[in-house]
Design a protein around this nucleic acid. Structure first.
Length: 432
RNA sequence: GUGAGUGUAGCUCAGUUGGAUAGAGCAUCGGAUUGUGGUUCCGAGGGUCGCGGGUUCGAAUCCCGUCUCUCACCCCA
C-alpha cells in the first residue's frame, strides 16, 4: 500500500534541499554578521504555552497530542513563546541586550494555500533588554541585509512601517476605549483585503459615527510621517509616537536602507502583543502575502511570567520567500549544481591496486572525488564524469602500467597532461 | 472549518460521440561508436487512468461519495 506524504508538508529531494540550504544558510550568515547568536528550542512545547495567552481557539490551529504521561503537548507553531520561556529561565545571568536568532521548523494545522504550508521554516531575530529605537532599526536593517544578500532591491521589496503606539494614541484621541482597541486593530488589519467603500461602510457601522469614521479613514490613507505630524500634532502621546517613528526612519536612512522605507498606517499586524513600531516587508506590485514582519513587543516576557523587559523581533518564513526568489530568477542564479573536483577513471589495464588508493588520497586531501562502479568501458566512465559535473578526470590506463604515469584531463577544455603518479601525489599534499 | 477548481508513467501533456493489449516528449536504465565525455542513433522498464461505489454488454471517458493538490475565505503567530 502506498502511503502518501502528509498534507501541507514537503519532501526535500536533493534539488529542493539545495534551495532550502541556500535560504537557511543565507539567514544564518546574515544573522551572524549583524551580531546575532544562534539558539534553538525543542520542537515540542506544553500546549498551555499557546492557550494561555491566545485562548482555546488556537488549539485548532496547531498540532497537539497527549503523551503517555497525559501531558498536553504541541508541535511549536512559532518561536517567540519558546524564546520568552528560555530567556525568562536565565534572565538574571544573561548579558543584556540579548541578540539571538533561530531558524526553527514550525507547524500550523491550517489548510495549505499559496505561501502557507503546515510545516515550514522561519527565521527569527530578536533583541531583548533594550528599548532603544536603534534596536528597532537594527531588526529592519538585518532583515534588509538578508533581502539584499538574496539579490532583491528597492524595486522588488518595500518595508511598510507603522506604530501601535501611534495607532493607539490616535484611536484614544477619538475616545475609543482601551478595551475596544484589539477589536479595532483586527478590523483595521483587514483593510487591504476589501474594496475602499466596503471598508468605509464597515467602519461606519462599527463606530456608528460618521465623523470619527472619516477621521480614521483619513488617518489610514496617510502615506507620510510629515503629513501625520501636520494633521495630528495635538496630543503629547501622538507626538511622542511620531517622533519615535521619525527617529527610527532617520536611523534607517543613516544605515543606508532608507530607500526601502514606506510609512503605512495600514500595517497593524494581527498579533495582540505588539506595543510599538511594527513592520512588514512586501513584494512590490505583487499579489503575495507579506514576506516577513515584526515589531516591538515590550510586554511579552512579563506575559510569560518573567520580568518587565522590552523586546523587539522579526519572523520570516521560507514559503513566500521561495516563491518570490523563484519569480525573480534568483534561485537559478545563486544555486550551483554540485561539482566534483576529480572523477577517477580506469580501464583496469594494469595489475597494481592503485585505483582506490588514489581515490582515497584525493578525498583525504579535501578534494570532492568520485568514480564509477563500472570499470569496463572508458567512454562510459567519462560520460558519467560529465553528468556528475566533474572539473577534472584522472585516467589510469596503459601509461600507468608502462611508466607509472596518469592522465589528468580538464573536462572544460578537454586538455590533458600525462604526469608521473608520484609527482601528482606530491603536488596534492603540497597544495594543502 | 467553508467554498471553487483539479487529478492519465518520475515530469509536461494526448487519448475521437463510452469500444478491443492507454500513447508522445522529457527523465531513468541498457546498447552502438572498442584509448576519451557533453551530440547523435537504437532499445527497454515504468500507469488497477487518485481511491471506492454506481449506470452500462462495455468506463480513463457518464453519475455519486471520498482523498489529494491548487486557489480563495476564516485565521495569521
Amino acid at each position: 500500500m502506498k502511503i502518501p506524504p502528509v498534507k501541507g508538508t514537503r519532501d526535500f529531494y536533493p534539488a529542493e534541499m539545495a534551495v532550502r540550504n541556500y535560504i537557511i544558510d543565507g539567514w544564518k550568515k546574515v544573522s551572524i554578521r549583524n551580531g546575532f547568536e544562534e539558539f534553538d528550542s525543542p520542537i515540542l512545547e506544553h500546549l498551555q504555552m499557546y492557550t494561555q495567552k491566545s485562548g482555546a481557539e488556537i488549539v485548532e490551529q496547531l498540532f497537539s497530542f497527549k503523551d503517555r504521561g497525559d501531558r498536553d503537548l504541541a508541535l511549536i507553531p512559532e518561536m517567540t513563546p519558546s524564546l520568552a520561556r528560555m530567556v525568562n529561565q536565565k534572565i538574571n545571568s544573561l548579558p543584556k541586550p540579548i541578540k539571538w536568532f533561530s531558524v526553527p521548523r514550525l507547524f500550523r494545522a491550517e489548510r495549505p494555500q499559496k505561501g502557507r504550508l503546515r510545516e515550514f521554516f522561519q527565521w527569527n531575530i530578536d533583541i531583548i533588554g533594550t528599548d532603544s529605537i536603534a534596536a528597532d532599526a537594527e531588526i529592519i536593517f538585518t532583515t534588509l541585509d538578508y533581502l539584499q544578500y538574496a539579490g532583491l532591491s528597492e524595486n522588488d521589496v518595500v518595508v511598510k512601517v507603522s506604530s501601535r503606539k501611534l495607532l493607539a494614541a490616535f484611536l484614544k484621541s477619538l475616545s475609543i476605549a482601551e478595551n475596544d482597541l484589539p477589536g479595532m486593530y483586527a478590523m483595521l488589519d483587514k483593510k487591504p483585503k476589501m474594496p475602499a467603500d466596503t471598508f468605509a461602510a464597515v467602519l461606519n457601522e462599527k463606530l456608528s459615527d460618521k465623523d470619527r469614521a472619516s477621521k480614521i479613514l483619513a488617518f489610514m490613507e496617510t502615506d507620510s510621517l510629515e503629513k501625520i505630524k501636520k494633521s495630528l500634532g495635538v496630543n503629547q502621546k501622538i507626538d511622542d509616537a511620531i517622533n519615535e517613528l521619525l527617529e527610527h526612519h532617520r536611523l534607517l536612512n543613516e544605515m543606508g536602507v532608507g530607500r526601502f522605507y514606506k510609512f503605512d498606517p495600514g500595517i497593524v499586524r494581527g498579533l495582540a502583543y505588539y506595543t510599538g513600531i511594527v513592520f512588514e516587508v512586501h513584494a512590490v506590485g505583487g499579489e503575495l502575502r507579506a514576506i516577513c514582519g515584526g515589531g516591538r513587543y515590550d510586554n511579552l516576557l512579563k506575559d510569560f511570567g518573567g520580568p518587565d523587559i522590552p523586546a523587539v523581533g522579526m519572523g520570516f518564513g521560507d514559503c513566500v520567500l521561495e516563491i518570490l526568489l523563484r519569480e525573480k530568477g534568483l534561485l537559478d542564479k545563486h544555486i550551483k549544481k554540485p561539482e566534483l573536483d576529480y572523477f577517477v577513471v580506469s580501464d583496469k589495464s594494469f595489475e597494481e591496486n592503485i585505483f582506490f588508493d588514489l581515490v582515497a588520497k584525493l578525498r583525504r586531501n579535501g578534494f570532492i572525488t568520485d568514480f564509477s562502479y563500472k570499470t569496463d568501458n572508458l567512454s562510459k566512465q567519462l560520460k558519467t564524469a560529465s553528468e556528475k559535473n566533474a572539473k577534472k578526470c584522472i585516467i589510469i590506463s596503459k601509461e600507468y602500467s608502462d611508466s607509472k604515469q596518469i592522465i589528468v584531463k580538464d573536462m572544460a577544455t578537454g586538455e590533458q597532461q600525462t604526469i608521473p603518479i608520484d609527482k601528482f601525489m606530491d603536488g596534492l599534499i603540497n597544495s594543502k
